[in-house]
Design a binder for these strands. Structure first.
Ligand SMILES: [Mn+2]
Ligand SMILES: [Mn+2]
Ligand SMILES: [Zn+2]
Ligand SMILES: [Zn+2]
Lengths: 137, 137
DNA sequence: TAATACTTTAGAATAGTTATAATCTACGCA
DNA sequence: TGCGTAGATTATAACTATTCTAAAGTATTA
């Protein structure tokens, strides 16, 4: 709960007013020990489980987008069914479990750096993402 | 146009009846010299440009899904805005030009093989995909 | 040619997401 | 400490990609 002060700071620093809703979403996203992956749908369910008051879907979308543009979370492209987000904003790759519909972090020591021996004229690389799809044996 | 016989064969082999619509879509997808990337939307536009008769959206979706499940095309995850498909079904990676919203093939000689030093128990790797997002300098 | 299974189609339904516009709130300033 | 205002929240409508439905059409095989 003293985390809340940090969240307020975090929001203020990036020019976002520390509202009740945003602080609650901060608690859920950044208050745990571990980072995690979520869809808007999943986040919405977590919120309604852990909270008495309801946060409207529009606010959840707005907040996730705000956090995304501030770099507090990352977006992960898996498929077009649903957007996935990641509270781990470091550069890292993923397994995607097609049976559980679940993202799993691949740590840097678990994968060789990807080397691209080609440049696109006039373009700079913004990100390199590896997605390893896995399924049951 | 003698390609059409091949397309009929191709469809027959996989248990799909060679209908007028499917053959037309085959022509567009597999009749050119080069492979290419497309969204359903783009394919739909190409069809209406190159064809007098119209093919309904439902049929385009059905056919793309059928071809996908037969392995005639691949699906590429870029973002959740829209699904992308690829008539190049070989294993290969992609640049994604965020300004032009366009996929560009990375050839095997342009990237070192990606080595994953970790296994998920009970799971087998289905695919390894690298997506390099680029934007204007 | 007839029976049948498969296919196409228009349009309805669904689902994720974004826009709207009214209400509410945070916060700098009087 | 209370006001004014910019910014935030919300319910709901709108939008769009995709899937479903069910009726009409077509390929296939006997
Ligand atoms: Mn979407
Ligand atoms: Mn979709
Ligand atoms: Zn991650
Ligand atoms: Zn490709």
């Amino acid at each position: 709960m003293s985390d809340n002060l940090n969240f307020v700071k975090k929001l203020r620093i990036s020019g976002l007013r520390p509202t009740k809703q945003r602080i609650k979403i901060c608690e859920i996203l950044f208050g745990g020990k571990d980072t995690f992956h979520f869809s808007i749908n999943e986040l919405s369910k977590i919120i309604s489980q852990k909270t008495n008051e309801k946060i409207s879907l529009a606010t959840i979308y707005n907040t996730v987008h705000a956090f995304l543009s501030k770099g507090y979370i990352k977006q992960i492209a898996v498929n077009s069914e649903q957007n996935y987000y990641d509270t781990n904003t470091t550069d890292h790759h993923h397994f995607y479990d097609e049976d559980k519909n679940q993202l799993i972090d691949i740590h840097d020591n678990e994968v060789e750096p990807v080397k691209i021996n080609r440049k696109i004229p006039g373009k700079k690389i913004k990100s390199i993402e590896v997605l390893v799809k896995v399924q049951n044996n």
